[in-house]
Design a protein around this nucleic acid. Structure first.
Length: 688
RNA sequence: GCUGGCGUAGCUCAAUCGGCAGAGCACCGGUUUUGUAAACCGGAUGUUAGGGGUUCAAGUCCCCUCGCCAGCUCCA
């Protein structure tokens, strides 16, 4: 009887009993209620999920979790990760195990393999080995052991990472081991569980990829080999998941950007997008849509410089907190000055060359001392200068300042990704300067505007995160208390559901993050609003209150699309490149059946354009089928087919991207229809 | 930045063991005058990312740099 708490049950499943007779296993509780069947993978107790072997008080309310129930998938995947590690260690002796959790889409397990990376062929082999283990339908057993026992056991196996994990488990917590496999082929892992009762409950398995990952996510630690996989109860569900991945690949905005002539990149401006006319058209329409809404929402747009004296960033705190991500432009005068002082310094040092590190320190210092220009990574400091430029009254507040200025941020090489993470971009940025008592009202107004905009782009699923103070920050704890509670209160007042993410706030203030799910159920962070008491203080911002005294305004940083570039990337994938009529670069392409209709084609094109419709025409000598195919691939919302019949009757035979062929109609009616349909639409998003 | 992989025509991709750089699409010229997802014939297309090395010979092997991809880390 190991650890003094358990006995082996009749089916080899370990049951646990305390000395007190009123304890039963979850399994026994289910049997008592007549709820045990072969689909049960675990039970829910309150908010947590535990496995069938867990000893519980007799009076505990347990709810069975069966295959297909929410929560079951995680248990299945986690158990599948164990089976994978088992297979891997069987096939690749000498490989050490570390951790293997489940993720949103599947699971992974990190290995330390002396022979280096796994190949795709290895994955196939491992999969096969896993299927055999599943087929054996062997039970998972849980046992609780003492710390010393656990350490002994894993030390004996040479599992140094496991030993490290055990040493990190706080005193008083159970140390549990899980073993699965048929006799003689058993495999044990340190794990908190829960796990399925038997490997036979594991369904369709697919190992998807292999990648490097640091031990404990720290880049100073050794790189491990991570194998990603996924598992579903049935092959059909796995196939559906794989089909979604394929669909995501097809919709990848980088691919569509190329195919649809939207944007490009060039290695001479890495991670900085170039928008072709079609892309620029969509981009500008997004921005113009916001500008239209800003009128009603009381925003005023400003235009601010691109490059500033470093003193600006000293004042704002960016130099101290954000320097690694900034570009420092050098006016040619300053370059001369720097080189001059470098030579002088060298002379003083007796002419000997400086070491790399010393030189870097010297030059960095000089750059910061000199009145160097840095490309702005954010608009807020510039806006503070505008606020401070003259005396402000409480009557002017709130002042809602909007700015679509370009920002430059030096992102580390490995993080840039298509339009989603770039080094040159614009935000639909805005800063609201207001009195402290106006903060709540402004947050509420912002929320309304945000939902209005998301619904126009047909993002229906929004979830909110409240990110609180990070370790590296400016401002006092009182300020942070105030700011965090203002955000939380606005959410509670609006009845919006949210999640708190501790330590994720900006260095100058806490923030709300608005995440949306796209058509493929992937989550993206778009909007944000941040409460900032620090920046106004650093810039000495003041306004005259109704009492005649000077007061400090609060600053709200806010964006709805976030980075316009990133939003465009997300939106391209959301709509699969099939832009709705209101935002499509071209709304109509006219297609002539033969060159006989060229003249009417040109007339119709001019007419549509005269009505303000974005139209193009394909008057080439291609056959109709080919022209339609080309137009379909470019995803024009409407095709206007023109043959002899249409040319004679001043008609258009429309073909809608969504609805297919339509009855021929008068050119004028066609134009009316397009104009009527070309409005931002959609139903308001839900907030579950 | 780290680990691994990749970089061949505008695009998608071939090129056996190190042995003549190729195909389709796009493009250009011609024929066809077409009714709802690809007409036909012909033509041009390259610093094989850049630099260096090994070799009689390098797209292919080695080194460096740049860029891209996946993941990690980061994401004010």
């Amino acid at each position: 009887m190991q650890g003094g708490v358990g006995v082996w049950g009749p089916e080899g499943v370990k049951t646990e009993r305390s000395n007190m007779s009123n304890r039963k296993t979850a399994k026994e509780l289910l049997v008592d209620k007549g709820q045990l069947d072969d689909k049960v993978v675990a039970v829910r107790v309150g908010k947590s999920i535990v496995d069938l072997h867990t000893a519980l008080d007799e009076a505990t309310v347990v709810e069975p979790i069966r295959i297909g129930d929410p929560g079951a998938l995680d248990v299945v995947r986690h158990s599948t990760a164990h089976v994978m590690a088992d297979a891997v260690q069987r096939m690749f002796p000498g490989t050490k195990v570390t951790i293997g959790p489940c993720t949103e889409d599947g699971f992974y397990y990190d290995f330390d393999r002396p022979d280096g990376a796994f190949t795709d062929a290895d994955l196939k082999k491992i999969e096969k080995g896993m299927r055999e283990i599943v087929k054996a339908n062997a039970p998972f057993r849980r046992e609780v052991v003492t710390r010393a026992e656990a350490i002994d056991r894993f030390k004996g196996l040479g599992e140094t990472y496991k030993v490290e994990i055990i040493e990190g488990i706080p005193e008083g917590e159970d140390i549990s081991l899980y073993t699965h496999g048929v006799k003689g082929k058993e495999w044990t892992d340190l794990c908190a569980g829960p796990h399925v009762p038997s490997t036979g409950l594991l369904g369709a398995i697919k190992l998807t990829s292999v990648a490097g990952a640091y031990w404990r996510g720290d880049e100073r630690n050794p790189m491990l080999q991570r194998i990603y996989g996924t598992a579903f109860p049935t092959q059909e569900e796995l196939d559906e998941h794989l089909r979604m991945l394929e669909e995501a690949k097809k919709r990848d905005h980088r691919k569509l950007g190329k195919e649809l002539d939207l944007f490009m990149f060039h290695e001479w401006a890495p991670a900085m997008p170039f928008f072709y006319p079609r892309g620029a058209s969509v981009y500008n329409r997004m921005v113009d849509f916001l500008r239209g809404l800003y009128v009603g929402a009381g925003y005023e747009e400003v235009i601010t410089p691109q490059i500033y004296d470093t003193r600006l960033y000293q004042t704002s705190g960016h130099l101290a907190n954000y320097r690694e991500n900034m570009y420092f432009g050098i006016p040619s005068d300053s370059l001369g000055e720097i080189l001059g002082s470098y030579e002088e310094y060298q002379k003083k040092q007796g002419g000997k060359a400086l070491g790399d590190k010393e030189r870097e320190e010297f030059l960095t210092h000089e750059i910061m001392q000199a009145r160097f220009a840095g490309a702005k990574p954010m608009n807020c400091p510039g806006h503070c200068l505008m606020f401070a430029s003259r005396r402000r009254s409480y009557r002017d507040l709130p002042w809602r300042m909007a700015d679509f200025g370009r920002l430059h941020r030096y992102e580390r090489g490995g993080v840039v990704h298509g339009l989603a993470r770039v080094r040159s971009f614009a935000q639909d940025d805005g800063h609201i300067f207001c009195m402290p008592e106006q903060v709540q009202e402004e947050i509420s107004r912002f929320n309304k505007l945000l939902y209005r905009i998301y619904s126009a782009f047909e993002f229906k699923d929004v979830h909110i995160k409240l990110a609180t103070r990070p370790e590296k920050r400016i401002g006092t704890d009182e300020m942070w208390d105030l700011a965090e509670s203002a955000l939380e209160k606005a959410l509670i007042d609006a009845g919006l559901a949210y999640e708190i993410t501790p330590g994720e706030g900006a260095f100058y203030g806490p923030k709300l993050e608005f995440h949306v799910r796209d058509a493929l159920k992937r989550s993206w962070q778009l909007g944000t609003i941040q409460v900032d008491y620090s920046m106004p203080e650093r810039f000495g911002l003041e306004y005259v209150g109704s009492d005649g005294a000077m007061h400090r305004p609060v600053m709200l940083h806010r964006a709805i699309l976030g980075s316009v570039e990133r939003f465009m990337g997300v939106y391209i994938e959301h709509c699969g490149g099939a832009f709705p009529l209101w935002i499509a670069p071209e709304q109509v392409i006219l297609v002539t059946v033969s060159e006989k209709q060229t003249q009417y084609g040109q007339e119709a094109l001019a007419y549509l354009r005269g009505r303000g419709i974005r139209a193009v025409a394909d008057l080439s000598a291609d056959k109709l089928g080919a022209k339609i195919r080309n137009a379909r691939m470019m995803r024009y919302p409407y095709l206007g087919i023109i043959g002899d019949r249409e040319a004679e009757g001043r008609l258009i035979a429309p073909r809608s991207r969504e609805a297919g062929e339509l009855e021929p109609m008068a050119l004028e009616s066609f134009a009316d229809r397009i104009l009527a349909e070309a409005v931002p639409g959609g139903t308001p998003p839900s907030n579950p």
